[in-house]
Design a protein around this nucleic acid. Structure first.
Length: 340
DNA sequence: GACAATAG
DNA sequence: CTATTGTCA
């Protein structure tokens, strides 16, 4: 579930076109997982091709990347490598949630409750290796580069913002802040409405930018201290956090004592986790060394062939979507030519 | 999640 | 023009 820094960070509303001509490092797993979770029918089943293979991730990547490229945004997708061994407990926890959700899904279906069925189906979402491979190949058709991180993708994405190779990192998770990303963008999508789980209400979702430096200044802390705050609240590497400690208490305790080792009342719990290792995952992570990030031409024909001939997408829809992209790119190069 | 069609 | 609904594969 990532970590809950929501109440501690400084968030500023922005728009997608503010990122025109900028390279954005996208947390690939985060984005694709959301496509797989939400692009579903009313009964909760994912979209599939004629062979029964899931296509939700391809649909999501198609429309989102057309929007990015049309606006002149330059996405580079960062894929996860091997998870740190400390993540095992969290991975097991997620597996169990999926198992429970599968049972609840079956029950909702048998009772004819489609709303619940859809909700629980979303919780069963899992990403298969084949989907990762397909997504990489698909991005290549768009001329969009991707990077394979040695470990956590967010760490490499954050790294790219610090070398200046990317303007910001895009993810829904706040881990990027602990990883020291210069800027993190959340809701990096065309603005739209999103349903609040369990309630019949909707909220407008707009992109928001979080600058690590601004956040650290506002709470008067170093990144090292914020990482300790994160560990108190709970990270993927100590999912339960500390008993009776939420964001507010965590902040207060670190303000007062500066570091985990010096907070008297938590020493017993602290002994049970490998906090030095966790600190290292955020402060000094394994990241990919990236030479150069190259964007290529869009292979329109390749996209049509793949989606229509192999994955059962409607030819009309794909053609009109790609025409929209072509038009936008032509307009861009016209605007550029005017300078010469 | 994103779109197009539809209603207001 | 904004808001809602159904559909995509």
């Amino acid at each position: 579930m990532g970590l809950n820094l929501k109440d501690l960070v400084i968030r500023e509303k922005t728009t997608l076109d503010a990122f025109s001509n900028k390279i954005i490092a996208i947390d690939a797993y985060n984005a694709i997982y959301q496509f797989l979770a939400s692009i579903r029918g009313p009964d909760g089943l994912q979209l599939t091709d004629s062979e029964g293979r899931i296509t939700s991730h391809l649909s999501g990547l198609l429309y989102r990347n057309v929007n990015f490229l049309s606006l002149g945004i330059k996405p580079v997708y960062v894929f996860d490598g091997k998870p740190p061994s400390l993540k095992t407990a969290e991975i097991e926890r997620r597996k169990q949630i999926k198992k429970d959700a599968t049972v609840k899904y079956e029950k909702a279906i048998s009772e004819g409750n489609l709303e619940d069925a859809r909700k629980f189906a979303q919780q069963t979402t899992s990403m298969k290796d084949g989907m990762v491979k397909e997504s990489k190949e698909f991005l290549t058709h768009f001329g969009i580069p991707y990077i394979e991180a040695p470990s956590e993708g967010e760490a490499t994405a954050a790294h790219l913002t610090n070398t200046g190779q990317a303007y910001a990192s895009a993810s829904q998770d706040y881990d990027s802040i602990l990883c020291g990303a210069k800027k993190l963008v959340r809701n990096f999508t065309s603005s739209g409405r999103r349903k609040i789980p369990n309630r019949n209400t909707y909220i407008d979702v707009v992109p928001e930018i979080i600058e690590t430096q601004k956040t650290l200044e506002s709470i008067q802390m170093s990144r090292e201290e914020l990482i300790d705050v994160g560990i108190l609240i709970g990270t993927d590497f100590n999912p339960n956090g500390f008993e009776r400690i939420g964001p507010k208490t965590a902040l207060k305790l670190i303000k007062q004592h500066k570091r985990l080792e010096d907070i008297p009342q938590i020493q017993e719990q602290l002994n049970e986790i490998e906090f030095e290792q966790i600190r290292k995952i955020f402060l000094n992570p394994e990241v990919a060394k990236v030479e150069e990030i190259t964007f290529n031409e869009v292979d329109y024909e390749g996209i049509v062939n793949y989606l229509v001939k192999e994955r059962s997408f409607s030819e009309d829809r794909i053609q009109s979507t790609l025409n929209r992209l072509k038009k936008a790119l032509e307009k861009k190069s016209q605007n550029l030519d005017q300078w010469f």
